[in-house]
Design a protein around this nucleic acid. Structure first.
Lengths: 205, 205
DNA sequence: AGTCGCATGTAAAAGGTTACATGATTCG
DNA sequence: CGAATCATGTAACCTTTTACATGCGACT
């Protein structure tokens, strides 16, 4: 079974869910589209890790409520003892930051300001969720502990990234980064950027 | 062209590289295996974004040094104006934190301590690189600016995650999280965990 | 004697996204 | 009247990983 499978077991270990609910719950844990979730649920049910019951609804489409089996719990318990594989981060914004020197100051600043906006939106959404968990009094003695600490983790890190963004903005202004680069390049057309490519030192990357 | 292609253009915009060098440089930007890089380099060369020259070596295998063309630079410049897609993070450790309540205190603490060790190792490696960039005097007026701010970003965030890890460890100890859970479960076998599954509130995830 | 670094490639398999398909209800 | 939510599924496609394939030199 793959990591998505264990993420599904982790959610179902707390509470039986439909595939639709799973897809929203998995967003913070291991994002996946429904087209990946539904076939995997079927596979896992066939292998005995999950069970499901049909629930008929009126006004809404019928659904399947999946729950974890004993075999599923054993699989999850074993997996919990394995050391986690390295995290994978793929972030186009980082590539654009890396190539900042290649664009104009206006665009570079816009990229950073947009990033800050996105991060702030995420942080404030999570803050509401955190307050909700705290009000339920479930933050340090239940299955909600994991959710509670993960929500906080995301907010700690996103706030730190906002600080970093502001730090970069300051660096750009204080050191006149773009003006200095343009100074070397005389004007800043692609041809002139070209001529400057081996102007600087020989550091890696 | 996909994001990996633009990551490659971003690296080659600074300095011509072999595919082998690219694979190491891309690690922080957009990780990729050589089996993905080599065929893409060929494709991008055929489309006119890259050019290469054969370099014969003695003692070492021959290599191809790729460099970005004018067409490549134009493509990169255009891409820099597009707003970046959302970051993708996949981290097994987060799933295990989420399912902390499902394992024993010893294992939970081990997972967190191992995470701290890994993060500390990464941070100290990066610190050396940062000092190197600063000594080259290249941090605020060159193509190395991007690399400099990205190295710092990773360290800011990893240090913040170390703080978070310690915060979680304290929470576990201070609130006797595991003892409280075991109290509810009476003993902690899988069967008894089973019986407790709907004991707590009805919060999402 | 064995592993690491340099160096390039292909093939197969697994993982993940986008698009196709359907359809009622509720809210603005 | 259009968009969002609930709800499940398949097919085609793209991306990424793992495995296969080779080979010399340097270091332990």
């Amino acid at each position: 079974m793959n990591t998505l499978g264990y993420a599904i077991l982790s959610v179902l270990a707390r509470r039986p869910c439909s595939g639709y609910q799973l897809s929203t719950y998995l967003e913070v844990l291991w994002p996946a589209k429904h087209s990946q979730i539904y076939p995997l649920l079927t596979k896992m049910e066939q292998k005995g890790f999950l069970a499901f019951e049909h629930v008929e609804q009126t006004g809404k489409p019928d659904k399947k409520i999946f729950s974890i089996t004993e075999a599923g719990k054993e699989a999850l318990a074993l997996w919990m003892k394995e050391s986690p594989s390295d995290r994978i981060v793929r972030d186009e914004f980082l590539i654009k930051m890396y190539s900042m020197w290649f664009t104009d100051e206006e665009n570079a600043k816009k990229l950073i300001h947009d990033r800050i906006s996105k991060l702030k939106r995420k942080v404030s959404l999570r803050e509401k969720k955190i307050i909700k968990v705290e009000n339920e009094g479930a933050h340090h003695a239940s299955k909600h502990f994991g959710r509670y600490v993960l929500l906080n983790r995301s907010n700690f890190l996103d706030k730190e990234e906002i600080s970093w963004c502001n730090w970069v903005l300051k660096l750009i202004s204080n050191t006149n980064f773009f003006k200095l680069v343009l100074g070397f390049l005389s004007a800043g057309t692609l041809n002139q950027i070209n001529q400057s490519i081996n102007f600087f030192g020989e550091l890696p990357i």
